[in-house]
């Protein structure tokens, strides 16, 4: 199936591009498919919230984008680089210069014994900036996130909210084009979460950093330009400007939102009917005839329909 012209344009300017991305975790005697054909583009400067239930594959997507794992199949490109073939060294360079990352657990983003400024400097240490420039940038970042007053306090002694803001600052230390954040507000109170969201937005607006954030927090979804919902290893829906859209997969599949599953529970036979601007689904056992043979009529567009016995 060929891509639409709109998608082709988007791909050309995308910071993140996924095409049929499949990720299978293999352990002896057990294979777990985390992603089953994800197609996703995130444009330069775009802010995207990745939503979805636990185990849907959101974190796996993050690992893939950060070059920490390689995809089993499909294509993933980040900042114009094809991540399928990237070496460990190149991936490390990428994480240093172009991709920042914030982990879910604040403690895991930081060296607890290092000061706030020391943590920012630690992130910059492999760069070739002068020590003075590094220090100036670190101080600027701390100022920006409101932690200048605790710049020399060990990170382990900061509050959870402060730690997460510091984690964002650390991730931004080298001016990345893409910031990946894995549930950055999940362990924070509302006020701290709001501060982190503001920080992310500010970074996007001021620095043009593309944001891709895994979250369960509706506030993050609202604050970002787009939401992408991952369900069962696929992109199930996208939200823009407060409206939720289904995403049709390459194989024509769609994932219904949870509220529609009350109408069409899993296993229901449904009739897909072409309408002028799309397709309507009707339950086969509710079309009035009660005759299943009618389902096999000439207007049928899908073999699907009706509830299986």
């Amino acid at each position: 199936m060929s891509e639409t012209p709109e998608r082709e344009r988007a791909t050309a300017t995308a910071t993140v591009h996924c095409d049929g991305l499949v990720q299978v975790y293999g352990t002896p005697g057990l294979e777990v498919t985390a992603l089953r054909g994800v197609d996703l583009d995130v444009a330069e400067g775009e802010t995207v919230a990745l939503l979805g239930p636990s185990g849907a594959g959101k974190s796996t997507l993050m690992w893939l984008f950060a070059g920490l794992i390689k995809p089993t199949a499909g294509v993933v490109e980040v900042c114009g680089r094809r991540m399928n073939d990237i070496s460990g060294r190149q991936a490390a360079k990428m994480r240093l210069r172009e991709v920042g990352m914030v982990m879910q657990n604040p403690g895991r983003n930081l060296l607890p014994y290092e000061s706030a400024i020391g943590n920012v400097l630690f992130a910059q240490s492999p760069t070739r900036r002068t020590p003075k420039a590094k220090r100036r940038r670190a101080a600027g970042l701390l100022e920006a996130i409101g932690l200048a007053s605790v710049a020399h306090r060990p990170a382990g002694r900061l509050s959870g909210g402060e730690q997460q803001r510091l984690a964002v600052a650390v991730a931004l230390a080298n001016g990345p084009r893409l910031l990946l954040a894995d549930e950055p507000t999940s362990q924070l109170d509302l006020r701290s979460a709001a501060a982190v969201i503001d920080l992310l937005r500010a970074a996007n607006e001021d620095l043009g950093t593309t944001m891709l954030v895994v979250t369960h927090d509706p506030a993050v979804g609202k604050a970002f330009q787009r939401t992408v919902t991952i369900r069962d290893g696929r992109v199930g829906a996208e939200g823009r400007a407060g409206e939720e859209f289904l995403v049709v997969g390459k194989d024509g599949s769609i994932q219904l939102p949870t509220d529609l599953l009350e109408v069409l529970p899993p296993g229901t036979l449904a009739r897909a009917v072409r309408i002028p601007d799309g397709v309507a689904l009707h339950r086969a056992d509710m079309d009035g005839s009660g005759d299943l043979d009618a389902l096999r009529g000439p207007d049928s567009t899908s073999p699907a329909g009706g509830q299986r016995p």
């Binding site: 060294r89 490390a92 994480r95 240093l96 895991r108 060296l111 992130a123 492999p126 650390v170």
Partner: peptide
């Protein structure tokens, strides 16, 4: 281990 992983996450090369 987590600190070493953090260093890798921050883009520290193998030698560093």
């Amino acid at each position: 281990g987590p600190e070493v992983a953090l260093a890798k996450l921050r883009g520290h090369g193998r030698w560093r």
